Amino acid sequence: MKILIIEDEFILATDLSDTLEAEGYEVVFVADNGPEALEFYQKNEVDLVLCDIHINGDWDGIETVKRLIDVRQSPIIYLTAFTDAETLERAKETYPAAYIPKPYHIVNLRMAIEMAINNFAMRVHPMKILKDTKTDVARKEAILQVNECIFIKQNYQFVKFRLDDILYLEAESMYTNIVTSQKKYVIRQTVGGVLERLPIKHLVRIHRSYAVNIHRIESFNEHEVIINGQAFPLGRSFKDEFMRQFMFR
């Protein structure tokens, strides 16, 4: 997860950055003023913003955040020593995911980040979230979409990958392996359940145990499909649907 930090205290910013990196997040930039943060935000991918309210320059943190969300929406968490009612009312106008007083505790920050991503995905793509909320499994194994990326929970935090990076899905008992070009993720859902929730038209079931990204296919024949040098069986009952993905000339 790519995080932008806006903080004017160098030691605190460094400590926060190191803590987040140790937690598995990626701090893509640290700015100590609004214009610098805005310039980076306009040109780069950012998943979440952690912002102090008292920062260098003419813009405070709240004004900076207003300018950021004018560019595009992102989840915002304020980390600040300001807890007065007036500041809090101004901060509310930017609809932050959390407002955490300094000094922060990493456990509270970790929970705030998770809730921020979850609530932001619900607000931006309400129909793209895991739909079946009747079971404990469904609540624990949420699949969240933010723009062209997917967040799934792994080891108590949400991790992100791009939709186009998915190579294939593989069934393994009650679990599904989501295999990307970089890594394998495990989610407690069936392949069919994952397919219902991932908004990818080119992810196609080819076998009871496999679904593949047709954009990543290297070759195929009557019996198997090759992706990244690996062969996957093409089941007889899935062959017609698989062939419908291609335009014949």
Rank of each mutant, 00 (worst) to 15 (best):
T94R: 01
A112T: 01
C149A: 15
K66I: 00
L130M: 14
R139S: 12
D132I: 00
R139V: 06
L68N: 07
K66W: 00
N108R: 11
I76N: 04
A116M: 01
P126V: 07
A121N: 05
R123Q: 11
D136L: 15
K92N: 11
A121H: 01
T83K: 07
L88E: 14
I100K: 04
Q73F: 11
R139K: 14
I69Q: 02
D132H: 03
N119E: 08
T133F: 01
E114Y: 06
Y78I: 05
S74L: 06
R162K: 05
I106D: 03
C149Y: 15
C149G: 12
F158Q: 06
A98S: 03
A112Q: 00
D60P: 07
Q157E: 13
E86C: 13
R72V: 09
K128W: 02
M127E: 14
T135G: 00
I113G: 06
G61Y: 01
D136N: 14
E86L: 15
I77R: 04
N155Y: 13
P75Q: 02
K66Q: 08
R139Y: 14
Y99C: 03
Q73G: 12
T133Q: 08
I62W: 02
K131M: 04
K102L: 10
L163E: 02
V159E: 04
S74E: 09
T94F: 00
A116R: 00
R72F: 09
K134P: 01
P101M: 03
I69L: 00
I113S: 07
N147C: 12
F161L: 03
Q154V: 13
R67I: 07
T94H: 05
R123E: 00
E148K: 11
A142W: 09
I113R: 08
K153L: 08
A112F: 10
R72D: 05
Y156K: 15
V124P: 01
I113D: 07
A91I: 07
R72P: 13
I76R: 04
L144H: 07
K131W: 02
K134F: 03
K128T: 12
R90W: 08
Q157C: 14
E148L: 08
V124E: 15
E114M: 02
P96H: 04
A98K: 05
I143Q: 05
N119A: 07
K131C: 04
I143W: 02
V107Q: 15
I76W: 03
Q145Y: 10
E86P: 14
R123Y: 09
I152Q: 03
I152D: 00
T135A: 05
K66L: 06
Y156N: 11
M122I: 14
K102C: 07
E114N: 11
K140T: 09
L163H: 07
I106T: 12
Q157D: 12
A91P: 00
I143N: 06
N147P: 12
T80K: 00
T94L: 01
D70C: 02
T87Q: 04
R123F: 06
N119R: 11
A121E: 10
I117C: 07
I113K: 04
A116K: 02
